[in-house]
Each structure stands twice: as structure tokens, then as C-alpha cells.
Design a protein around this nucleic acid. Structure first.
Ligand SMILES: [Mn+2]
Ligand SMILES: [Mn+2]
Ligand SMILES: [Zn+2]
Ligand SMILES: [Zn+2]
Lengths: 146, 146
DNA sequence: ATAATAATGAAATTGATTATCATTATCATA
DNA sequence: TATGATAATGATAATCAATTTCATTATTAT
């Protein structure tokens, strides 16, 4: 089994909360870790079906919440009215740039922006917990082809 | 009638698109302009009912879309799973700071952040169209009372 | 007024997510 | 290794914001 670290983390999280590492959960973790980028529930559902066609959508929703709670996954709302997930364990924080035409997603990190966000929160006497920042635009490819 | 400017803009937008300034639309505009801050459809629906209890929710949804298209309103998704609107005509662009405890919303504008967003888009060869940026935290009030 | 067209509101539909619940799986312990 | 307490599953129903449908009503140009 690959992803030994992530598996350990998930196991620990489950154990701490008196939950079990079941087969469906193991399959969903595996599929999640093997998928690149930003994935939707439906995509994960389709992929788990290839491994075990009995796993239901509800179990995917539930397992993804557990992965978020255990710190392995992050929930993004890059698309209106639909959430998507991405790996966060062992990766650095970043924000997103979305092409409104082809939906391509690029990632970026801007330390200065992060700094100013902190300062802004402090100025408003807020204890900053998190932030959403997404830039919407048209990518070079889409710009040329239209 | 107050808000002559906004009314003109709405009338022009409608005329340009072969639509009519009907009574329901006029009422909804009025209610929208008289409401401070960030408002949800349900809130607008309740308020329009006081003026004309026959106006349906669907008409509010439709009218708010028109207000967005005409440049009078902006749609925000500060709360998960629900959109809210705010006035933009005659106001400056800003982003939001949301208290996760009491849901208080504060507004801020940080020119440097905006500048860096532009630079980031350019670096990725994206033509920047818009951005979402919301900071989540705990306000001073909520910090003290807990 | 009249005809052509646009708008309305009630109700149905959609689509993502969550809850319910009978059934099945897990695991500590006898 | 059986057993019973508890957790997890998956099919299905429920939710809920938002959109669509459609028969009826308003609006406007003629
Ligand atoms: Mn990402
Ligand atoms: Mn605002
Ligand atoms: Zn593109
Ligand atoms: Zn607060």
C-alpha cells in the first residue's frame, strides 16, 4: 500500500473518534489520493465504482468529510453550487485562478497578499481563521481561440 | 421617487433589452435600494410582501438577476449555499471579513492586495475579470464573550 | 380597442447535499 | 470463535435554494 503516511493519519483520526477503517473508507481514501487536482464527488463516485461498485454516494460524502476533518483533504468551492476536494497533506497553502471559459484551474501563492490579509484582520480586530481567494479570468489559450 | 439615478439606469437597461419596467420590478428595486447591507432573497421577499403581497419569489429571483445585469447589484456568496446581494452603484469595490460566530460582515478595501492580484493574473497570463476574497475569523465581540 | 409580445406567480422541477433507517459489518470480550 | 454492543453502509427519502414551466395577466405599438 502506498501513501503510508496518509493512511496512518486517517487511521489515527478514526481511532481517536472511535471509528473504524472500513473497506469502503480505505477504497475512497485510495481513490482520493490517486486522483490529481481538484475533484468533485461525482468523479470520486465514478472512480470508486471501478474498484467496488457497491459503494454508495452517501458513503463518499461521509468519507470525504472525514478526510477533511482528519486534515488530509480540503474542501473548495471554486465552482458555484458544487464543492470540490483536493489533497492538502504535504502540500503548501495556495489560492486559485480559474478560467471562466474552459474552467482550467491554476494555483498560486502570494506571501504578500497573505501578509496583508493578516494585517487587515488585525486592523478590524478579527482573529483570522481562514480565507477564500479565487481570481477569475480568461486563460491565454481561451483568449487566443476567441 | 428617490434614487432617480438608479431608476434611470434600470429603465435604460430594460429598454435596451426590450423589457418593461413593471410594477413588481419597480417595487423590488425600491425595496432593494432601501435595504442596507447584504440581503438574501428571503429578506427581499418578506419586504416586498409589505408593499405588494402578490409578488412571488420567482419574480424576486428574476428581478435581482436583472439588477445585477444592469450594474446596480452585486451577487455575493458569503454564506455557504446561499447567495446574497448588495448595492454597488455609487459604491467602491470592497471585499469582506466575516465573523464565523455571529456572522457579522465587515467590508474592507486593500489596494495593495488588488495590485498583487492583478500581477498574479498577469504572471499566469490570465485576463483578470473578477475575484472573490473573503476573510473568515472571530470578531472582537465574539472573542470576548467566549 | 386589438393583436403581439413580455411578465407574472403558482406550482413543479432540478440538482446537490443531508437525513433516515433497515440491514450488515466490526470488534472487544467472554 | 461465538456473541452482543455499536458503528457503518447503501438505498431511498427529504431538504432547500434556485430554476423552469405554463396558464393567466400586463404592457405596448398600432
Ligand atoms: Mn488547489
Ligand atoms: Mn459588501
Ligand atoms: Zn481557459
Ligand atoms: Zn462575531
Amino acid at each position: 500500500m502506498e501513501y503510508v503516511q496518509e493512511l496512518k493519519i486517517f487511521e489515527n483520526y478514526l481511532a481517536e473518534n472511535n471509528m473504524h477503517l472500513t473497506r469502503p473508507r480505505k477504497v475512497i481514501l485510495q481513490v482520493f489520493l490517486q486522483t490529481e487536482g481538484h475533484m468533485e464527488i461525482e468523479e470520486l463516485f465514478e472512480k470508486t465504482k471501478m474498484v467496488d461498485k457497491n459503494i454508495g454516494r452517501a458513503t463518499i460524502y461521509r468519507a470525504m468529510n472525514l478526510l477533511v476533518e482528519s486534515g488530509l483533504a480540503q474542501e473548495n468551492s471554486l465552482i458555484e453550487d458544487k464543492k470540490c476536494f483536493e489533497r492538502v497533506y504535504g502540500r503548501k497553502h495556495h489560492d486559485h485562478l480559474v478560467c471562466t471559459r474552459c474552467k482550467k484551474i491554476e494555483e498560486f501563492h502570494h506571501p504578500m497578499i497573505e501578509r496583508f490579509q493578516e494585517k487587515t484582520a488585525k486592523k478590524h480586530q478579527f482573529t483570522l481563521i481562514s480565507h477564500h481567494m479565487t481570481l477569475f479570468g480568461v486563460c491565454q489559450n481561451c483568449n487566443c481561440n476567441m
